[in-house]
Structures are given as C-alpha cells and as structure tokens.
Design a protein around this nucleic acid. Sequence first.
DNA 1: CACCTTATGTTTACAGCGTCAACTTATTAG
DNA 2: CTAATAAGTTGACGCTGTAAACATAAGGTG
Lengths: 199, 199
Amino acid sequence: MENKTYHHGDLRNELIEVGAKLLIEQGLEVFSLRKVAKEIGVSHAAPYRHFKDKEDLIVEISNKGIEEFYNALAKPFYEYKNQPKLQLIELGKAYIKFAIDNPYLMKILFFSDLKKKIDISKISDINDDSYSLLVDSVKNCIASGETTVKDVQALSLLTWSFVHGLSALMMEEVINIGEISDEVIDKMVKLSTLGYFKS
Amino acid sequence: MENKTYHHGDLRNELIEVGAKLLIEQGLEVFSLRKVAKEIGVSHAAPYRHFKDKEDLIVEISNKGIEEFYNALAKPFYEYKNQPKLQLIELGKAYIKFAIDNPYLMKILFFSDLKKKIDISKISDINDDSYSLLVDSVKNCIASGETTVKDVQALSLLTWSFVHGLSALMMEEVINIGEISDEVIDKMVKLSTLGYFKS
DNA sequence: CACCTTATGTTTACAGCGTCAACTTATTAG
DNA sequence: CTAATAAGTTGACGCTGTAAACATAAGGTG
C-alpha cells in the first residue's frame, strides 16, 4: 500500500469530490480547506495549486450540484412532457424533494453569496438551466388553456416562490408537520395550483 | 473625554446593541466576537463574562430581531383586523418587505442553525408569536366564508410558503425582476390568493 | 471603616483557519 | 540531457473562538 508519490496525479478532481462530500454532508459553516487536504492526505497548502482560494473550490463544487439539481428536475419534465398540468406539479414535487434530500447544497445554491443570478425578465434568453424547465412548463400550461393566469413571468414566479418557500420551511425544519411524507408534499403542491388551474 | 473605567457598567447590553448592528449590517459570515469587543473598546475576552460563547450572543440578538419581525407583522394584523382577506394580503406584504429590508436577520432566523422551531401541528398552542398572526388571519378568512379551502393548517402553510419563498428569492437576489417595487409585491401577493379566495 | 467575596474586567496562551512566500521535487518541452 | 514549469511541502502571518490565570472594582458583613 502507501503508494505515496510526491505528485498526487489527480488532486484537482479529488479536491472537488472529497470537498463535495464534506460540504454536502456537513455544511458550509464547518467546511474548511485544511480538512479537505488532510482527508486526502496532502499538505494544507496543496489546494492552492488548483484553486485560487476557498471560494473558488466551493464554486466548482456548486457547479456539479447545479447539474444534479437540473437532472432532478429534468426527469419529471421529460417524463410528463405531454401532460402540462401534471408536469408542473411533478416539477414542483421534484424540487421540494431535492431540497429536502440536499439541504446543505440548496443553502449554498440559494442562500449563500455564491448563488447564481437569474434574470427573470429575460425568459426567452434562458434555455439551458433549471429555471427554463419551469418556464417551459408554465408556457405549456398556458398554451394548453388550462390556466386562469396568462402571464408567463408572473405565473413562473408564483409557482417558483411557493415550492421554494415550502422547500425552505421543510428543509430548515422551521415547521414540524410530523413526518415529511410524499403525500404531504403531493397534497400541498396540488393545493397550490388551485388558483391558476381551471376546475 | 476618555472616561475609561475598568468596569464598563453596561457591557452586556452594549454587546447586544453593537453586535446587532454589525450582525444585521454585515451578515453572519463576517461576524466576530473580537470585532464587537474592539468596537466597544473592551478586551477580546470580555464578552465571555456575559455570554457563554459566540452563538449565545447571536441567539440573544436574534431574539430582539424576532420581536421586530413580530411587530412588523402585528401592525397590519391589527390595522386590518376587520377585513380578513385584506388582512392576510397585508400580512404577506409586510412579511416580504421586512425580509427585503433585513436580509441578514432573516437568514439567521430562517436559514441558520439557530432558528426556532415552530410546531405547526400545535396551532392551538401557539398564541404569542409571528406564526399565530398568520394562523389567526387564515382562520378569520375561513370563518368569514371567503375561502374555498377550509383546512386551516394547509392554508396557513400554503400562504406562508409562498411569501417565504418570494421573500427568499427577492432578498437573495436570485431573481432580478428589475426594481423590487411595492407594486410588484402587491401584484404577486394578490395573485397568490387567487386559488383559495372566491371571486 | 476594614475585610472578604463576587462580579467583571485584562492578559496570555492555544489550536484551527485562510492565505502567502520560499523551497523541493517530479514532469515535460526542446 | 537539460532547462523550464507544474505540483507538491514547509513555515509563517494575522485572524478567529475560547479557556486559564490574573487584576480590579463593587458590595455586603463584621
């Protein structure tokens, strides 16, 4: 064993992988570069050959997290492509479930200073991120004549706000509704659509 | 000048006051006990005569913040006491405005590990905090027959989730809807009520 | 008043952190 | 083969939270 070479060989990727593990399991507040280095078995300054600073590594980790988030939403998006209303509901449920399963990641993506800024006024420009899935789904709903509200931007923000807020309340355990079950999530998301869906 | 006495006299309160200023203006991430001590002009270990540790001081500051939050919501609550629907809408608007005006405080209250837990299943037991204002308002709306949904718990969670989520998106600047104006907030909150209010 | 106790400060010390500079070693280009 | 460069290590700095030892002021008791 102990195949100790002076040069690691793939340190950059291992920093991201091990860093992601620590960051997502333990949270941003206790995340430290030195811990990551120690875990890998490399000196405390080694990460600086691959990342400008601590934030730089976190951003890299976040980028992988954003991909996972996108994939989690893309699944129901394509699965229910031909059922606009159901598609929007399933998108919301997937959003909430992802948040509950990955609270530390969500905090970094949405509640830290590293989060991405999205310009909601430029809906047509967005075509490759998670938000565009929501907007597309909302458009589908409006186009299929199922909604009372016709304003894409407003309806997107409305639905996003709801699932985002419920996610936050649940993942932060601000509320205690006993077991957070799939049924509860399903019920709440469907309830939230009452306003802008017919019948 | 320089009325330097060995004993400060009111250090505990000044720690809370100066601490609150720094915490709410600059955020939790850069908040340090030593900075607070230096700002007051006292040694870096002095705070430990009044607070067990850093977290202890932050909790104390948060408690004052929770009071302010409550007051911000209590104002419209009592002002629109006899107009259930308007009361709920104004509560939501006040919530969002407070969040936008006090992002760092809101982050501590809702997105840090110091947040208070609220047991939504014990609605009847709650009678003195911000959440009870919302629940009362929802009850008023249901009682006055203005809503389609009759489930107090579900409707409370629904409305809370929406304003909470919109607050988060706005205060974190995740979205950029240009100027965050009173009109935008008003529009969104009213739109959100479409589902559970008649006509 | 003098004395002792307690409350409330200060100083010193330590470990962990991010980061930088200086140094070392392996890899690679010419 | 050799020189340049990439990728490690070591040691240092200042900042952090926190604890222990010490100093001083305030208050109560004789």
